[in-house]
């Protein structure tokens, strides 16, 4: 029973960074209608920026993290300005933009592999302290991941529901054509969305990289799990992305308990197929009228 409870807690803790990644994917997918594959590139690049700042420029962890996140947000802005916006202005189809996004992902992944090599790079060189409570274990970095990602996810959710500017971002997902009609700066809003998404990817990337190290080819795996969390929870509710992420992470943990680690990917995507077949709007999705689709 302790084992199951331990795995459940691990799932809960892993769910928070995944919730942030789900926001990074969901914001771009919902508001800009782009299947944001380049998010995988943002995820891996952020970790390697931190590694480079600490190892090449001898920066301390605490001073390197803010600069890493600033550079990661700048990279998100560069993707918008250099790739997504030109395709949007040319009225390219979603498929074309998705291929371009995939291209960004592949280029970044390969450049990182060339510069840093395919070997795993460790940011932290010490074992994390572990906290024990009634036979249950949690490491310090797991706790930090849970708290910081929880604050980021909750904070952005609060802003989206309370702040006028953030409400515009959310509303853009419902009625994208109304934004310019209402005299709002469409390109600026697009840029803000990409920067916010990059921020929400950068925070878990730094924490996960610090926890388990860096490898150039892990971006796609995180991107796909985050997209599953968004569709599982429901695309049109912000909080559902977080619930979806936590559910997926807990299910992945329980799979290990019930069967074996080799079934994690199978179960993750089986959930997605099952939900899309029987609840196309996700578990907490909003049912729309046909004319709203």
């Amino acid at each position: 029973m302790t084992l199951l409870l331990q795995l459940f807690i691990n799932g809960l803790v892993q769910g928070m960074p995944l919730a942030c990644l789900a926001v990074g994917f969901g914001l771009v997918y919902r508001s800009l209608k782009i299947f944001h594959l380049a998010m995988g590139a943002e995820f891996i690049l952020t970790g390697y920026i931190l590694y480079a700042l600490m190892n090449w420029f001898n920066m301390g962890l605490m001073s390197a993290i803010p600069l890493t996140i600033i550079l990661a947000v700048a990279f998100g802005a560069a993707i918008e300005k250099g790739v997504y916006l030109p395709f949007f202005n040319q009225k390219s189809s979603a498929g074309v933009t998705m291929i371009a996004s995939l291209g960004v992902m592949i280029i970044v992944e390969n450049v990182i592999a060339l510069i840093f090599g395919n070997n795993v790079k460790s940011i932290s060189t010490d074992l994390e302290p572990i906290y024990l409570w009634h036979g249950l274990k949690i490491t310090r970095i797991q706790l930090i991941q849970f708290l910081i990602c929880g604050i980021c996810f909750g904070g952005l959710g609060y802003l989206i529901h309370r702040s006028k500017w953030f409400k515009v971002i959310w509303a853009m997902g419902d009625q994208p054509k109304l934004v310019p009609v209402m005299g709002l700066p469409l390109n600026t809003i697009r840029l803000v969305i990409m920067c916010l998404a990059a921020f929400m990817v950068a925070v878990p990337s730094v924490l996960i990289g610090y926890d388990v190290g860096l490898e150039p080819h892990t971006g796609m795996s995180y991107l796909l799990t985050a997209s599953v969390a968004v569709f599982f929870g429901g695309l049109d509710r912000y909080w559902a992305w977080g619930i979806g992420a936590i559910c997926v992470a807990i299910l992945q943990s329980v799979v290990v308990w019930l069967f074996s680690g080799e079934w994690i990917s199978f179960v993750t995507f089986a959930i997605l197929v099952f939900v899309l077949l029987f609840k196309p709007n996700g578990l907490f999705g909003v049912r729309k009228r046909m004319e709203e689709e």
Partner: peptide, 20 residues
């Protein structure tokens, strides 16, 4: 006996089950 994937970053759960 436990298994992990080549791209797995998070293998805590498999290890916890093994050490049980």
């Amino acid at each position: 006996k436990e298994t992990f994937a080549v791209t797995d970053i998070e293998t805590r759960n498999q290890v916890i089950k093994l050490l049980d």
